[in-house]
Nucleic acid binder design. Structure first.
Lengths: 249, 249
DNA sequence: CGTTGAGTTGAAAGAGATCAACCGAAGTGG
DNA sequence: CCACTTCGGTTGATCTCTTTCAACTCAACG
């Protein structure tokens, strides 16, 4: 695992949630301007991971949650059999590691899908802080609860929906998450490989590929490689009977 | 929704986590004997629901989490299309409603599968209390994190495993949860209908039925109706490649 | 005693997995 | 600089597990 960049107080590197463009999506969202410094005091900002590097590994000691600053992360569980199950994709402003707060070790592995920078929240300090700041505690409950809901939505998607519905749902989920960050909701680049999509959605890679081309032939999307353009969002919403990962914040 | 039984201080009905046989599974687990009273002060104990009654309903205002004292509960999401997705089964000692802490309304509906008694924890009071009691806060994080993990496990089960594996996994999960309560892990009565099992596991009822008889013919279980006896736990574990809902506490 | 609902069993149909081949881009190294 | 390899992605043909549709059993119950 990469080494943390040492942070000196008042250095240019000192954590600045104040100036972070994601402060309206991330933990700072929950707290007053004047209390922000207490959060800044515990966060280690600016750790960078290259594509493929692990932010943390399953079964290693659980120390911190991480907020994505830029780039993207995939989390996955590895079973004894060696099978991988992708449990989520995390974009800037989203918090990774909430599923690991029940034990002494990480419940999954987090891997950078591209060059990614994160803010690290050491768990003891975070717990201590949430104990003192009711709004922050409330926000943590909120985030964790949201994570449960997301996972339930995924379970529903996996158990009731066809391949087309699953993929449409994923595309729309990504779209809305790009939109939250004031990026184009119809024109973006998938951070993950077809393989990861397939694994996440419980499909074979071939099926994912087929559905992509089917959508393309129907004029719903245009895709070459990871570049995707949503041409008919309405139609995609129709394909997705009900699923919507309604904003992960 | 049923009405809460009014609680008077020092009445015989006053909440007594002290005497509750589930105190080693439930929230009291997290706190010292001498602090237990603070928890007892906020909990409303002894609400009873008959089979089929709703503990709470999706989209109604979120007020409380509930701990199961006796009986059992199923939670489910109803989609716009009217489809139901069972998201979980809850047994004595387990906490229901954690997925609703991210909004003002319940994210799912909780229904008693049999005559069920619950303890109610009003959310504002619970949050207030966890703010004062670090161990309790820690335990809440623990429980919510566990819930995320459970849901990930379910997602994995739904996306990678066959019907037989899913059902074996469910049987073993129930088994271990009975065992935690010092009940027989091999001889129990399913609280839920085949329909609920099928819905939960993303299968057709007929498939569930077929797998039950297949298991029976193979000598793995004996089942008549909801009465189940696990005859060969080892074999069931073999069937289940990896899944295990490793204790919901 | 007929009705109702849950559960079981059988036969046919379908969605997706699997197996296999192929393509193109990005290295790699002689 | 070009053959060679590798890897991610696409496409085709077959196969299989599960669903679906349908009929039937059984127990509870008014």
């Amino acid at each position: 695992m990469a080494q943390a960049i040492p942070i000196r107080k008042n250095s240019p590197l000192k954590a600045s949630c104040h100036q972070c463009s994601l402060s309206n999506l991330c933990l700072p969202l929950a707290i007053e301007e004047n209390e922000l410094e207490r959060l800044e005091d515990i966060v280690q900002q600016g750790r960078i991971f290259n594509r493929g590097e692990h932010i943390f590994d399953q079964s290693t000691p659980f120390r911190s949650c991480f907020a994505v600053k830029s780039g993207s992360i995939k989390t996955s569980i590895i079973t004894e059999g060696g099978d991988e199950q992708v449990t989520g994709f995390f974009m800037p402003g989203e918090l990774v590691g909430l599923d690991s707060m029940s034990g002494e070790s990480y419940a999954c592995t987090a891997k950078a899908l591209e060059r990614t920078s994160v803010c690290e929240f050491p768990i003891e300090k975070l717990e201590e802080l949430t104990g003192k700041m009711p709004e922050l505690q409330h926000h943590m409950y909120h985030l964790m609860s949201q994570e449960i809901q997301n996972s339930h939505q995924l379970a529903m998607l996996l158990s009731k929906n066809t391949a087309e519905e699953r993929i449409a749902a994923l595309l729309l989920s990504l779209s809305s998450r790009f939109q939250r960050r004031r990026l184009s909701p119809t024109n973006f680049s998938l951070p993950m490989a077809r393989n990861d999509i397939a694994n996440f959605l419980g499909l074979a890679v071939e099926t994912v590929s087929r559905v992509f081309t089917r959508f393309q032939n129907q004029g719903l999307i245009r895709a070459r490689g990871r570049e995707v353009e949503l041409l008919d969002v309405e139609a995609l919403q129709t394909v997705t009977r009900e699923f919507s990962r309604q904003g992960c914040q």
